[in-house]
Amino acid sequence: MESFSAIMAEALGLILSGDPDVIEIIVLSLRVTLSAVAVACLIGFPLGATVGAFRFPLRAGVIVVMNTMMGLPPVVVGLLVYLMLSAAGPLGVLGLLYSPTAMVIAQTILVTPIVAALSRQVIEDLYNEYSEQFTSLGVGPLDRVLALLWDARYSLLTVALAGFGRAVAEVGAVIIVGGNINHVTRVMTTTIALETSKGNLQLALALGMILLTIAVIVNGLLMAIRGTAARAAYV
């Protein structure tokens, strides 16, 4: 087995060479993850805002369910999506199994509860501050939700980042519904798992470094945005 430094050097060489296979894997990973996070935010933000801003029967139960679903086991989600999309499943006719769309669906199911639960907390804190003012101004239910989402926009970016972190690092669900097919559904995490098992540590390490770099860049970007917003008193 090669030394760690030799593997690292080869991994860096792979990144710097702009290997088309590596780039394809990175692009697909980002496409799937960003699509899943976007859909999860479209569902999770209004859901979180609604639960955060309104009182209704069984609300506490809904919050417990939302919080519990944050810890959904990825392989279980992968299995359920697999059963739904397989030829014998209710959605088999769509022919989505082993496609990037199936991976987006699985990741969306994993990320939506995270986005909904965290945004519920953010919105509820803001709503406690705004509640009496909204009632005094006569703000209707829809306007309340929209105003809260807008005013919490910088905090919600952090929520979206948490969803992104979960999705981009996910492997269990996407490998079940995507199948890790070369040039079709192979993403960074599934490639790392596959190449490690094959002993191709250079590629696995190269993708691992890229994955970490993406996480650092996204975090840095969001910290900069939040910092600017905080200085301008929008947070």
Partner: peptide
């Protein structure tokens, strides 16, 4: 007493 300012 404590004005509620929207984040705008």
């Amino acid at each position: 007493q404590r004005p509620v300012m929207l984040r705008r």
